[in-house]
Design a binder for these strands. Structure first.
Lengths: 341, 341
DNA sequence: CTGAAAGCGCTTACAG
DNA sequence: CTGAAAGCGCTTACAG
């Protein structure tokens, strides 16, 4: 059974133990004011010894801020679909990295309920948010701005070229890298299962794909694929592609889980990967890495993106004007699905 | 660009607008004290009109609690593996449901960094935690109790039969249901890929499996499978099973993603599912539902489990002594992998 | 270099 | 039924 809660160690306790005022404790611990270095050191030591940590509630009240930030995943239709989004490796890695950095900066990350109205947002009571993959003119950005709250997006809102607080990968460069790689692996007719959304990530990738095709004098083959029921949608689109008389010999499956659907469609048709069909993913995942076969994919390095977004957001909540946007480097993970050797 | 933050509407503003004292506002809004019904109604209306919401920071400071709770996922080895856990459908659905309920009860759910020491926990500053799948004698439970903080587990700690604050499914009943179903579908030699852990969920399932085998005079075939690299581990174990001279004609793949590994192993050997091999999962997921073939599985109803855990925990933080443990009903989802018709 | 005091926005014991 | 006041634990402008 749990014992009664230990009474909290407050700044007064530290002050008493160190024989100074609470002002001096506060200054010492926060690196503010002009405190005798010896005093500062002693205060720090006493505080550590007593296991003192400033009350987040008190700090928040004093500062007039909540000290928390929200992590908001993309909304794709109804709640049931949100769950599918939530369990994607990419978002979970973003969330986990963002949580770690935010926490270090004394801004715990919280998992919010869906935000649709200004009232929802007021009720949420956060100092700001990280919003993943905003739709074009995402209404949630407007809500935050309405309340004067900073919002950092991962990927950008195509309807707001002025909103520069975002983090993203070099989407166009990544798509070119992927295409060059697939072409070098022998892909002649390279199709794209694009993500049917208004996300900048989708648009950037598709645009780069089309530009690359034009430069290389190849006919673009684009199949817009739903972001709901990722695997099944991709399977359907891949079937359509593979049943064409001029079927592609390579498919780039843009969104997470798309590749699994492509692999299934290929298998059903007796097409071997990579011998008969090259497959590559626009975004890496556990499933891509451990699937059968393992799928070559772009690793957007969500740990770096999430960390960058959190750092940016915390800086904004503190009134700073940090450098933005931030472009995070990505990596091409080459795997069996594009290696014919 | 974002406008300056709107000044917060405080209880004083409401009091002034309603022409009463802050005491009366507080009482009216919180249903406390003896307030004239007409006054109460007026205050509520004015508050709503001004868009007033009590400052969580102020309430937390007053109450001496933080007003937040942590959602802690199982630790399986290093950080990299935690990420794999985090992106499982099951935990995400738990988290999402728990977040919703907790938020409604004014206890936002936060995503904590790993908790290993008492200091980590103090630094975290939450009022309690929901801990998923505790290991036997999970050290984190002891840490919370050390600080007098309530902790609700999803599944129970096998080393602490006294800790009754948990939520779980009817694991043994579920396994029997699954076995009866698989046997009815024609399974004669039914093997179990069990989860190699000290979780109660694993233990309950394995125990029920063995008991069922004994009752039905069948030889148990148990392959303990690692919880790291779920799919690959399951693939390896399934290969071992399927290469035995007396290979099973049915495999129960306990943990999430195990079934995918089993399917791969079967396919490589030219075994058709369900004709040559029945496959069922101990836990449902998107992957199971949308895979090829769709996999019969137990749906633990994580939305209900997460909601129950949050409700239980919030009650505990408020000093109540709610009914516990709570057993949440599960569902058998029958799919193509066990239907030979 | 140090400290007394005000005040952030609540809730509640208490007085009327 | 209503309200004035104390106090939760901080930070900071200000005085010394």
């Amino acid at each position: 059974m749990s014992r009664p809660a230990a009474p909290r160690v407050t700044i007064r306790d530290v002050a008493a133990a160190a024989g100074v005022s609470v002002t001096t404790v506060s200054h010492s611990l926060n690196g503010k004011g002009a405190v005798d270095p010896a005093t500062r050191a002693r205060v720090k030591q006493v505080a550590a010894q007593l296991g003192y940590r400033a009350s987040r509630a008190a700090q928040a009240l004093r500062a007039g801020r909540s000290g928390t930030i929200a992590f908001v995943i993309p909304s794709v239709g109804a709640v049931a679909e949100e769950r599918e989004m939530l369990s994607l490796d990419y978002y979970m890695q973003l969330a986990s990295a963002a949580a770690r950095v935010a926490f270090t900066r004394r801004h715990p990350l919280l998992l919010p309920p869906p935000i649709e109205t200004l009232d929802d947002l007021r009720e949420l009571g956060v100092d700001g948010a990280i919003l993943c993959d905003p739709a074009r003119d995402d209404p949630r950005i407007a809500l935050f701005e309405e309340l004067g709250l900073p919002i950092v997006t991962i990927e950008r809102d195509l309807g707001r070229p002025d909103h520069r607080w975002y983090v993203e990968g070099d989407n166009r460069g990544n798509m070119r890298l992927l295409l060059d790689h697939v072409a070098a692996a022998g892909g002649r007719r390279i199709a794209l299962l694009s993500a049917d959304s208004t996300w900048s990530w989708s648009a950037d990738n598709e645009q780069a794909y089309r530009a690359w095709c034009e430069e290389h004098e190849r006919t673009p083959i684009v199949e817009p694929t739903s972001l709901r029921h990722l695997e099944t949608s991709a399977y359907d689109r891949a079937c359509a592609l593979l049943d064409r008389p001029d079927r592609p010999d390579a498919i780039i499956a843009l969104a997470e889980r798309y590749a699994t659907g492509v692999v299934r469609a290929a298998r059903e048709r007796g097409l071997r990967i990579p011998q008969d069909l090259l497959v590559a993913g626009g975004i890496d995942s556990h499933q891509a890495a451990e699937g059968d076969p393992p799928i070559t994919a772009i690793d957007l390095q969500p740990e770096l993106q999430g960390a960058a977004a959190a750092a940016l957001l915390v800086a904004l909540t503190e009134g700073e004007r940090p450098e933005a946007p931030r472009i995070v480097p990505s990596r091409l993970r080459v795997r069996a699905s594009t290696q014919r050797t």
